[in-house]
Design a protein around this nucleic acid. Structure first.
Lengths: 253, 253
DNA sequence: TCTGAAACTTCCATCCCATGAAACTTTAGT
DNA sequence: ACTAAAGTTTCATGGGATGGAAGTTTCAGA
């Protein structure tokens, strides 16, 4: 009781640990060995082993012949019934497909999630330039086209809260001055679309527009293009049409 | 102690229960109240409450203002890193988009999962006819275009095992006679594509082709069309091109 | 507005099951 | 063959899960 006996780390609950194990899987770690999982979660091997085993039995994880664990089809199946998939993605996909065919560019769809842009879907072809964004990935709001749109249509309070935190600056062109960003966001609201130029990745820019529903911005669609193909007028009108079409599809359901 | 005390249901492990809770979410139940979850899992309210609460805290579930729980974004995010999404879907999507634009029909992509066709993705527009298949959904192998392809390219042993079980017959046209199915599957292997006519849904048919990798059929692409638009020749060649394109994309990664 | 029943939440004494160190087995590299 | 690392099993222990019951909130209907 007196000296040791501290809750030094772990009066933990099993379920929380299991969720931590699953959370180890991210864009950079889509396949992990038991040892790696134990290290990442800081769990004792035997405990980790048991948890992972149960998850595997349930189909939440699957073990490959390379002894690495991956996210299982059961978990994936369940996730498909998230509103994000079932409503938004499903409704938007045909329009995104058309957009992709029309522009031949990188097309992305994102929502606001925990103060970041969560990419719900993206369409990337050989024709388009490589990007960091991936479906299921998070990127900052102030350095991406879709992010700026999502932020611009938030309440003033939420915007100030976002600006109050330290803002990452992935490129020299990233705008991180609160005042400059405020002006930028006002511009977005005025125009109804956002533009970024090398604020996330060197050599590329993006344009995005909001998807509105009941006066609220529920998501954003955007394209990412090589800087010298950033034909604002054409892209904005194409995107606006697409956003309207997705919004209609969302309501029509 | 004496009369009851049977292990009547529950020397259960917490984690298994939690996975059962999550598994309650399916195409027909994308939003569930606590009570409904407790009923479906047959868990005591208090226990269910605790589990659901922990899952919510972890972002695996989210509670709406309607007091209903839905699959949370955290879980969805993790699922996006499943090989199914990260490799297959990501690689195939641009091609599916093109296919959708070219044909204007219902396009589906499926893999084999636990003896059923698991729909990895689908593209449905207003132009195309309504279907049962949905991303994340399972359908029988012998009544769907993609399913027949997936089954046809399995080992003889696996096929026989499949045929040995009682086969559902959703429409009068569904083929459930083992012998008839064997002939049908041989035909699929010979032609390199499958056709169904009203075997799953009245009034519609489908065509599907395999996506091959290292001599194995890893997935199938197909279209579902109104019976009188089932233009075999044109669709088969379009689909074959698409399958080749997806296979190339898979290798090129 | 009031009332009651159903849905949800909290409590807590009991006890079962998760825990993790240690011993053992398998795998893969030399 | 040998060995170090990775994975698996074991088991005594106690702390966390359990679920009945009591308390609280919600909401439909009078």
């Amino acid at each position: 009781m007196s000296p040791a006996r501290v809750d030094s780390g772990a009066p933990t609950a099993l379920l929380e640990r299991a969720m931590e194990v699953l959370s180890c899987f991210d864009p950079k770690h889509s396949a992990l060995t038991l040892t790696e999982l134990a290290e990442l979660t800081k769990l004792p091997m035997s405990t980790c082993h048991r948890i992972v085993g149960t998850l595997e039995q349930g189909g939440f994880l699957s073990k490959g012949s390379d002894r690495k664990f991956r996210v299982g089809t059961k978990l994936w199946t369940i996730a498909q019934h998230a509103p994000l998939s079932e409503r938004l993605r499903e409704s938007a996909l045909p329009t995104l497909a058309r957009l992709y065919e029309e522009t031949g560019e990188n097309v992305t769809l994102a929502v606001l999630d925990r103060g970041q842009a969560l990419y719900v879907d993206r369409l990337v072809g050989e024709r388009s330039i490589p990007t960091i964004s991936r479906a299921g990935g998070h990127l900052p709001l102030h350095t991406t086209g879709v992010g700026k749109v999502l932020l611009a249509y938030q309440s003033e309070k939420a915007i100030e809260q976002y600006l109050a935190q330290p803002l990452p600056k992935p490129t020299p062109q990233s705008i991180t001055q609160p005042d400059a960003l405020r002006r930028d966001l006002a511009e977005v609201r005025k125009n109804g679309y956002s533009i970024t130029r090398q604020e996330m990745t060197r050599g590329s820019g993006s344009i995005a527009v909001p998807i509105m529903r009941n006066g609220r911005c529920v998501a954003a669609v955007g394209v990412i293009v090589h800087l010298n193909r950033l034909d604002t007028n054409r892209l904005v009108s194409t995107l606006t049409d697409a956003a309207a079409s997705i919004a209609a599809e969302l309501d029509g359901h």
